[in-house]
Amino acid sequence: MELDWGLGEYEGTGEVLLPVSEVVVGMSEPLAGRRVVDLGCGTGNAALLAAGRGAVVTGVDPAKRLVEVARKRAAERGLQAEFLVGDAGSIPVEDRAADLLLSVFAVIFAPDARAAIAEMTRVTAPDGVIRLTSWVPGGSMMTITQVAGKFMSEVFGGGGQPAGPKPFAWHDEADLREAFATHGFQVELERHSISVTAASPEEYLENSARHPMAVSSAQALASRPDGDELGAELARQLLVAVREVNEDPAAFKVSNEYAVVTARRG
């Protein structure tokens, strides 16, 4: 089942990830007059940054609630931007309509990666650019996420192993080049890093509990007769994990590399 990103409160995560949108939008300047599509716009970080630089912006997200949040944020800032409900498998934008297509930690969650790549290349103008971000495995933040994923997989019959075909490696330059080459695009990749801080490991977990993934997991566990026990065990395992990867003994800090992927027609 595809995750409902409208669950919980993604707004806090959006604030944490704002620096990544600033990096990606900064790499894409100048933007005045350019047509920008923010795919998986969430609360509108990248879309609003681009609109503030004079771009003609369309934000697209599958979660209706987040689209409404992004619209409200644009209105509060006096920015002109269009926000539409839609997903990466069927972007509600005409062929070759985007001079710049951005996707900050969004398209990487598309159920069908190759269909999403086909759609992104379809809506990108002949001289346009696609720029997306993806997490790089191995960092502290990904370690925490993997603990939760393994636990849920074991509880619901996955034995700790992902079901179905191997997920597309959005961080892998060779895989990206092969997938985009099918559509006549060349790919470049560079790495950056982001850190997340909190007063303590416990505060970090409390904040993380409002993320759509965490809320979805909590709902799934609550549907079981042993849901309370399972929820407590997951909380215990997560606390152990965040303490192990904590980079700041006086408070809490975790870091993770991410890839900025840029694709253009060859």
Rank of each mutant, 00 (worst) to 15 (best):
L132F: 14
T43E: 11
Y204N: 09
N207V: 14
G59M: 04
V67T: 03
T58L: 12
E233P: 01
V23L: 15
T124H: 09
S255D: 07
L176D: 04
D228W: 09
V36E: 01
V56P: 10
A250S: 15
T262G: 09
S223I: 09
P92R: 03
A98P: 08
C41N: 01
L31S: 00
A250E: 15
E9T: 13
E202L: 12
G52F: 10
T133R: 01
R191I: 11
F252V: 04
D38V: 05
H183D: 01
E188H: 12
D175A: 15
A118W: 03
R35P: 00
V25G: 07
T43F: 06
V37I: 12
V60T: 01
A214L: 10
V24Q: 02
A47V: 06
V240G: 12
E11K: 13
S255E: 12
E206A: 14
T121I: 10
V56T: 14
T133P: 02
V147A: 04
W5V: 09
R73D: 10
G6Y: 03
D87P: 08
G184R: 06
Q146F: 12
G59Q: 00
L230Y: 00
A125C: 06
G78I: 02
D112C: 06
R53H: 10
A32S: 13
P249I: 08
E9S: 14
R65Q: 05
D99I: 06
L221F: 02
V129E: 11
A163S: 15
A218Q: 11
N246T: 10
R243M: 07
L3A: 10
L239F: 12
T262H: 00
S255R: 13
M120H: 05
F109Q: 10
G6K: 04
G44N: 10
F168W: 03
D248V: 07
P212I: 04
F105M: 13
H171T: 03
R96E: 15
G8F: 01
A106M: 09
Q237L: 15
A251R: 10
E190P: 03
E244M: 13
R71G: 12
P225W: 08
A209G: 05
R77Q: 13
K150L: 14
P249S: 02
R131I: 02
L100R: 04
E190T: 13
A116H: 01
D99Y: 07
M1P: 15
V147R: 06
G42N: 06
A198Q: 07
V155K: 05
S103F: 00
G33D: 12
P225C: 09
G128K: 04
A55V: 01
L17T: 11
R73T: 09
A110Y: 02
V129P: 01
D226K: 08
F109M: 11
P126Y: 02
E68W: 11
Y10N: 10
M152R: 01
E178R: 14
A75R: 13
S103A: 08
E188S: 14
L7Y: 02
D61W: 10
E94C: 08
R265A: 05
E119T: 06
S90I: 11
A75G: 09
